Simulated scan of single mutants.
Amino acid sequence: MTEILSITAPIFILIGLGYVCVMTRLISRETTRGMGVFVITIALPAMIVRGMANKPLAESMDTEFLAAYAAASVVVFVLGMLVYRHVRKVGTAASSMAGLGMSSSNSGFVGVSICAMVLGTEPASRAVAMTILVESMLMIPLAMAIADAAQGQGELDFVARLRTTLKRLARSPLLIAICIGLLLAGFRIPLPGVALRVIDMLAVAAAPVALFAVGGNLHGLRPKGMVGDATAISLGKLIVHPAITALVFLLFPGLDPVMRSAGVVFAAAPMLSIYPILGMRYGLEERCSATLLLGTVLSFVTVSVTIALIS
């Protein structure tokens, strides 16, 4: 147990440090948002390229991992949506956002940081590229398409939203980094030593800066009477998602055990940091904000248990 806490405690201490620094106004929340921009646009893309460069394409993009993680996430999304629709008796849009909260991880900030400390930088940088693909190109568009259709916006805005989504994806630094990594791996283009050292320096900064930024951005979020919904979605995310992911991985016996563990660790991370922003479109920003705050706090316990189980 001491060994596990030695891994998880520094992660959540960094999150807590970011929260306290913003709470005491030592650092402004705008500064931590700038740190988040640095991670998303510079440091994390560098880590992704580092994990895919100078490797065969089959190692850089594991199709079995990609298929298994996507299948598990879709299963959890459907289960979460059905439970909220038929048990909690809420609308389709709210149910879709609940399913998204249970099935999509904060891969770029929390997941990759935990995985890097538990399994090492190399499997973390390989896995984060594939989990980001699943979240940005499958889970988020799926959830928002269902929610829009439920509000009568599906047919009217489909072409416009498709165009906007494609433009957003084309400009995403993370997806651009994945494309560069696939290009380097596919054509076996080696990166020179100087470039690798620069990329390594940037990649090392990704995890601590990301965790500090997560803590800073959590300040100001309030449950506001949403504890019941926040707890249900958080437990679905932190317990059901990694459990279903582990079960689906059993259907792929040829999958690398290290990547199998990496997938479970990523699934055990709390929900997307942009979850409240996505929920705002449907008037659910308070519930999504409360869920993000509670899920991040509870993940200290659930992530520790997950690491103990995979160890």
Rank of each mutant, 00 (worst) to 15 (best):
T41A: 14
T164A: 15
T41Y: 15
Y69T: 07
A70H: 06
A149T: 13
I132V: 08
A58R: 10
G80L: 05
E30H: 10
V112G: 04
M97D: 06
S103H: 09
A93H: 04
F158I: 10
L175N: 04
G99M: 01
L174A: 06
T32W: 09
N106A: 08
S113Y: 04
R126P: 11
L82G: 06
L66S: 00
A150Y: 07
M139Q: 03
R161D: 15
T165L: 14
K167Q: 15
Y69W: 07
E135D: 06
E59L: 03
C115V: 04
A58S: 14
L133M: 09
V112Q: 00
A93T: 05
A68K: 03
V110W: 03
A98E: 02
S104R: 09
L79S: 15
T63P: 07
V87D: 12
L119V: 06
G99I: 04
S105E: 02
L138S: 01
V37M: 14
R33G: 12
Y84H: 10
V90Q: 15
A70R: 07
M81Q: 10
R168I: 13
G99A: 00
D148T: 09
R88Y: 12
L79C: 15
R33Y: 10
D62G: 00
M52D: 06
A129C: 05
M137E: 09
S103I: 15
A145E: 10
G91H: 05
T165H: 08
V37S: 12
V112M: 06
T32D: 10
S103K: 08
V83M: 13
F65D: 00
Q151A: 12
A147P: 02
V134D: 01
G80F: 07
R171T: 11
L57C: 07
A127C: 02
V118Y: 00
V37Y: 12
A147D: 04
S96L: 04
V112D: 03
A170T: 06
T165E: 09
T31G: 08
V110E: 01
S73C: 10
S136P: 09
A94W: 13
L174D: 04
A149R: 11
T92G: 15
P56S: 05
T41M: 15
R171V: 12
K89P: 14
A53Q: 05
T92K: 15
S105L: 03
V90R: 15
V76T: 03
R33T: 14
E59G: 05
S105T: 00
T164M: 12
V75Q: 08
L142S: 02
T31R: 07
E155Q: 13
Y84L: 11
S104Q: 13
R33D: 14
I146N: 06
V87H: 11
T131N: 02
H86E: 12
G108K: 03
G120F: 05
R171K: 11
L169H: 07
R171F: 11
M35Y: 07
A70T: 13
A53E: 06
V87W: 14
A145S: 14
F109A: 00
V159G: 12
I140T: 00
E59Q: 03
A127W: 01
F109M: 04
E122W: 06
A43L: 02
G108A: 02
E135C: 02
